[in-house]
Structure formats: C-alpha cells, structure tokens
Design a protein around this nucleic acid. Structure first.
Lengths: 224, 224
DNA sequence: AAACAAATTCAGTTTATTTTAAGTTAAGCA
DNA sequence: TGCTTAACTTAAAATAAACTGAATTTGTTT
C-alpha cells in the first residue's frame, strides 16, 4: 500500500513518514499544496494524508480540485485543534476523514487502515465507534437493531465525542462548540446532557460508554 | 500551545498575557529572572517571552543557562530601544528572536507563531521514556498493553518528570507548578502523589521508576 | 391555545480527588 | 551504631466536582 503525505512542517512530515513506514506501508512526502495535488492526481496512492494549512494551495482546495477531476483517492485531512470547523467535520470538501493534531501514531494508522479498506468514495454520513453509529443526516443513534432519536444538543455532543475518539473533549469545548461563545450556559448543562446520553446508551445496550475525566472533560470508551 | 512570559513590569506583563490569551494560547507569567529560569526549564512551554532587564537574573543569563542545560525552548527577547546592542541582534546568547519595545500585539503574535512553527508546532501527543508513555490528550499512562488513567495532579506531576528527563525536578517546583504559587500545599502533598504514581508504575511493570534525590526532588530513572 | 418535545434550572445526592495527619521506614552523618 | 531528619505510606476526613430526577421554561406544531 502506498501513501502520500502532504505536509510543510518538515519535522512533522518526517515523523509521519516514519510512523507509516514502521507499519509496512510505502510513503512519499511532498511539502506544498501544488506538489501535493500533482502527486495525488497520479492515482498511484491508496490514501493521502493532507495537511489543511499548506503553502501555495490549501488542503481543502487540493481535495476539491481532485474530486472535480474525478480522482477519488481517499483523503485524510490533518487539522490543528482550532481549525476543526464544520467545513472539516462535515467533510463537505470531499475528504473522507480528518484527524486533529496532536494525535497518536495508533490513531493515524487505524484511520489509514479503515480508509484503505473502504477504498474511499463514500462520503461519510456516519460516525462509528465499536457497535455504535451516529447517523449525521438524521440525528439518529444506533446500536444493533435498536435506535434512538437524539435532540439537537444531544446530537452535537455525541458528534463531538465521536469525532474525538481517544481524546478527552473538555467540558469547556462542549460549551463553546455546542452552546456557543456568548451563551451563558454552565457546566451543569453539559452534565445534564451527558446524563441523557448515558441513559440512551444504556437503553441501546452499546459497549460504548462515556467516561468522565474529572476536572477536564469526557471521552468515549469501549467496554471489553 | 503554552507560553511563558517573564516580565517584571506588572502592567506590561498583564498586557502581554491578555494579548496572548486572546489568541487562544495558554500563558503563565512570572516576574523575575530566577523564576523565569525555573519555569522555563520545566520544558512545558512552546515559546518563552523574556524581558532582558529583570530582577535577580537578567534575560541573557537566563537563556544562556537554559542552553547550557540543554533546554532548547524557543525564546523571544524583549528589549527597550536603547538596549539593542550587538549582544541582542547577534542573538549569541542563544535566543531565537528579539522584539523592541514598544511593539504591536500583531507583531508579537506573528513572531510567536513563526517561532512555534519553526520548532515543529504540533509534535506528537505523547511523552516517552523507555517503555513508558504519557498520552497528553488523554491523561493516560501506558506501558506495554496496560494503561492507567491518571488524576489531574498525578498527570501534571508525571508530565513534569517526563519533560525533564535526566534533570532533577525540585519538590519546590512541583508545588509551584502543580499547586500554584498561592497554594499552601506542603511537601507532603507531593510525596503522597509520588507514592500514588509509584504504585501505578509498579502496576504497569514499567522499567521506569521515580528516584528520590533527598532534600532536592525527584527524577525518572530507567531500570536496567 | 393546547400539546408536545426540547432545553434549562435547581437541589439533593453521590462519587472522586485532594488534603491532612500519624505512624513507619530509610538515609545521612557524627 | 544510634540519632536526626527527610521521605514514605496509609487511612480517614474534607472538599469539590459530577450526577440525576423533577420542576420549570421555552419553543414549535397543529
């Protein structure tokens, strides 16, 4: 399997290349958006790891242009924490997945594997963890044959959690991203919704649960 | 991203802190050269903004001493007009950039960004020593296939230790950095948490252990 | 306007972390 | 060796954070 890394920060690029090589994949690295686009269009890559902030041509434009030219190689976007906008999470520029820096090698590899298996194409309408699926188009949470409808706040919190697997989502972030900066919602609001979600997860019999990290936030965990 | 401001003029210090916060970075402020040096050596900062004229220890000496101790955190020197000597412009004390007062917020932020990028902006998400990993986005401590979740205080102490490999972390520093300057926590508080951490390291079967340096502090060691 | 669902608020309860404190162990040194 | 002091360990107490059920408000739909 051959992977293209498009990343301008030399050190990060090298780290990525190293991680990927250690997992027995071939890897090529280029350092700006234009080269990235040219290489990507060659069609020889199975997955492309693409930074958003790039010289010459940003990551969004690279993907958009690729898709316009009917190139459907799976793309993982790399974004800094602050850059995770709907543009990214909605993946409506045509990317297949995204990863927020910083991330662990395991996470990168897991997503590479997932994407290469799926061979791209399908734009994601669902976020998945273990037996749990969140369907983005209709705010439904699903596990096995059971489903529940989520309210808007429940949905957005669940989406945040599922978009940040293995990462603690700070309560602060939830307030900011779900309620907005000028809302005067308090910590308890988040807690109440976490409580609602836990009840629904219990009803669904999912192996996924919401772990509390005291004084920090929440994170999804898979029961063994 | 975490930034340290070392500045003795309280008002300027506060202004700097405010500017930096507004740009979504975390910031700590200390008011003299000695504290500046101690904090800088913790290794948790991405950039240090350092005034030249400081009580107890001047900015040049702070940087020089940092570099001598193999700490390479990027440093921006703050100098008054008159102080711009060759010593500064040549940056031969080991600093990475300098800024002449007065300056605009934009200028400061631009240089912070430039410097943090140069250093490698987003490095991976873990601190590693031998078989031990601390996952920063998660407060998880890992060794082999075992993991333990750390409480906040445990986590911060572990992070301090891992950021200062081969360097003794004084108990005083831990109190200052983990409990804060105005806390009245005592040495025993640190000892209790060190004890907790040792128990978890033992459970993990790590080759890393916490060595006591009597009357000074602690340091990580790798068993052979 | 009634009926309903979603969102918020609040108070009482539960739980985890942090602190305190006291007894024990280990290190350094005369 | 024995004395002194620092460090270690544990358990209990104190504190603060998080949870949750229920009441209330808000907003939407018919």
């Amino acid at each position: 399997m051959r992977i293209l890394v498009v990343e301008d920060e030399i050190r990060l690029a090298e780290t990525l290349a190293q991680i990927i090589k250690q997992n027995k994949y071939s890897v090529d690295v280029v350092n700006d958006g234009e080269d990235g686009y040219d290489y990507a269009m060659s069609g020889i890559y199975d997955v492309i790891v693409l930074d958003v902030m790039l010289p010459k041509m940003n990551g969004f434009d690279v993907v958009r242009e690729m898709r316009r030219q009917k190139n459907h190689t799976p793309v993982i976007l790399l974004t800094a924490r602050g850059e995770v906008t709907d543009k990214v999470t909605g993946l409506d520029c045509g990317a297949d997945d995204y990863l927020t820096k910083p991330f662990s090698p395991e996470e990168l590899i897991a997503r590479l594997r997932a994407l290469s298996r799926r061979k791209g194409e399908v734009i994601m309408d669902e976020l998945v963890l273990a037996d749990l699926e969140l369907i983005l188009s209709n705010n439904i949470l699903q596990c096995g044959n059971k489903t529940v409808q989520l309210g808007l706040k429940e949905f957005e919190i669940m989406r945040l959690l599922l978009s940040n697997q293995n990462i603690i989502v700070p309560k602060e972030d939830m307030l900011l991203k779900v309620w907005g900066a000028e809302s005067d919602a308090e910590d308890n609001n988040v807690e109440v919704y976490i409580s609602f979600l836990r009840k629904k997860l219990a009803y669904l019999n999912s192996t996924v649960n919401i772990a509390t990290i005291r004084k920090v936030g929440y994170r999804l965990e898979v029961k063994k």
